[in-house]
């Protein structure tokens, strides 16, 4: 299970990468492996305002649907449209090319609620039990 040290994580298995006052968001390696082969991605539109826990997208495998939630409050300022054509990228490069949205945060200190890599690793371990 790959859990990059420089990212932040949620209990719903999204990751976030700080880019100034914005947060780039995707799903973790754990999430993609649990879902299996991803066949479809639908993301919220540019400009959509979101709050923590609100839907920013939906990811589907053949037998499962998972909603992706925003880790923070803000506005979606970039959407990774290429996922629509190549949803399988989430399986192959979930921390890289398969990012989902970029959110301009209302309050950049909000990321303090998110887990670091070690905390997320511990969380996964605890969940497995």
């Amino acid at each position: 299970m790959v859990i990059p040290e420089d990212l932040l994580y949620t209990k719903d298995h999204e990751w976030g990468r700080r880019e100034d006052t914005s947060l780039r968001v995707g799903i973790s390696d754990y999430a993609q492996s649990e879902l299996g082969d991803i066949v479809f991605v639908e993301l919220e539109k540019m400009g959509t305002r979101v709050r923590p826990g609100e839907k920013i997208g939906t990811v589907e495998s053949v037998k499962a649907v998972s909603e992706i939630f925003s880790p923070v409050s803000g506005a979606i300022i970039e959407v990774n449209d290429s996922l629509e054509q190549s949803p399988e990228m989430i399986n192959t490069d979930c921390y890289g090319d398969a990012w989902m949205v970029l959110i301009a945060m209302d309050d950049p200190t909000e990321t303090a609620h998110l887990m670091g890599a070690q905390a997320y690793r511990d969380y996964l371990e605890a969940e497995a039990k």
Partner: peptide, 9 residues
């Protein structure tokens, strides 16, 4: 075994 992933993509 049928490739259901291919069918959906």
């Amino acid at each position: 075994r049928v490739d259901e992933v291919h069918a959906a993509r």
